[in-house]
């Protein structure tokens, strides 16, 4: 078990390093260089240009710049934004909790209906709810969040003004929970849609299979109602396939926040990343991508660690990868 844990954590660390290196190299090889941010008068004068390059540290060998960057990053210093000179770590530190909160709300909005509908469709197989759920989930998967968000914004904006960002800037949870939640409800619902759809289908499929398995049949034969067996037995079995797609769901949530935050003007990490790329603000873009990648890998790691709890076979050393081979 610890072997598994250690191997997974090590794997994450290695991938993080690879990601940081890859991102760093790519950004420096990119045709859009930080030097483009200079005022025209400076760029025209070779002496001034060289002076600024020296100040920004761009005239050192690439390896030195990389090592410096990694060293600083490990200490929590991601450099300063090229756009307005504020520390990147500060901006990320402010934006990250907001995105996490949004993601959490969206997860809640996705998991609860998904469990309910998934269970219900399995209980009433072939009924209206079953078919309705299938239609609903496919539709929910096919509606782009950015389109829904644009429509929702205006439809709701006129009738319920408090669901939109307030003057005075975005209010965080610690400042005013009520206002903060009010503003995040709509974006969370839109964000939750696709996750909800995938979860519903995954749960439904997993539950149906679990219900079809030997031990459930046995339980039913022993007199347990469908609902009871569902709760006690099948749900456990359905968790495994759901956890497997959880990695994808998390990725989907993280990606989704980028677009949703943009439309609803929520100052989260997705919005930060988009503006950084639109302005070609190197350090900020790199920092935001590294942060997102770290979160993504971490959450996947957590899911991987939950596996042994749910599926004892994993504890015996069988990883998610190898499960496909075991026969």
């Amino acid at each position: 078990m610890t072997n598994y844990l250690v191997r997974r954590v090590l794997g994450v660390v290695v991938v993080m390093f690879a990601v940081v290196t890859g991102l760093f190299l790519l950004l420096h090889a990119s045709p859009v260089s930080p030097v483009n941010q200079l005022a025209p008068q400076v760029a025209a004068d070779p002496v001034a240009r060289a002076a600024v390059e020296h100040r920004m540290g761009l005239d050192r060998p690439l390896v030195t710049q990389y090592l410096d960057y990694v060293g600083d990053a490990l200490r929590g210093d991601f450099g300063t934004s090229l756009y307005d000179g504020s520390p990147v770590a500060d901006q990320i530190g402010r934006a990250l909790p907001i995105s996490l909160e949004l993601g959490l709300l969206a997860s809640v909005f996705a998991v609860i209906p998904a469990t309910a509908l998934g269970a219900w469709s399995v209980l009433r197989r072939g009924g209206v709810v079953d078919h309705g759920t299938r239609v609903l989930s496919v539709l929910a998967m096919s509606l782009p969040g950015y389109w829904l968000a644009v429509i929702a914004l205006v439809v709701v904006g006129d009738s319920h003004p408090d669901l939109l960002p307030n003057a005075g800037g975005f209010v965080t949870f610690t400042e005013d929970p009520a206002t903060n939640l009010k503003v995040l409800v709509l974006p969370a619902i839109v964000l939750a849609l696709a996750t909800f759809a995938m979860l519903t289908r995954s749960l439904r499929g997993g539950l149906a299979d679990a219900m079809a398995s030997d031990h459930v049949l046995f339980a039913r034969a022993m007199g347990g109602s469908r609902l009871l067996t569902l709760r006690r037995v099948a749900l456990r079995g359905a968790l495994v396939p759901t956890l497997t797609v959880a990695g994808v769901l998390i990725g989907g949530l993280l990606s989704g926040t980028v677009l949703i935050e943009n439309v609803f003007q929520i100052p989260g990490i997705g919005q930060l990343m988009v503006t950084a790329f639109q302005r070609q603000d190197y350090p900020l873009a790199l920092g935001a991508c590294v942060a997102t990648s770290a979160i993504f890998l971490l959450l996947n790691l957590v899911v991987d660690l939950l596996y042994p709890l749910v599926d004892p076979r994993t504890a015996a050393g069988v990883t998610r990868d190898k499960l496909g081979r075991a026969a």
Partner: peptide, 21 residues
């Protein structure tokens, strides 16, 4: 005084209409 950034033109006008700015 308080200057708030509303990058989206819609939100800006809506905020004015709602009396937030």
């Amino acid at each position: 005084m308080e200057y708030t950034v509303f990058a989206d033109a819609n939100t800006r006008v809506l905020s004015l209409r709602q009396g937030k700015v």
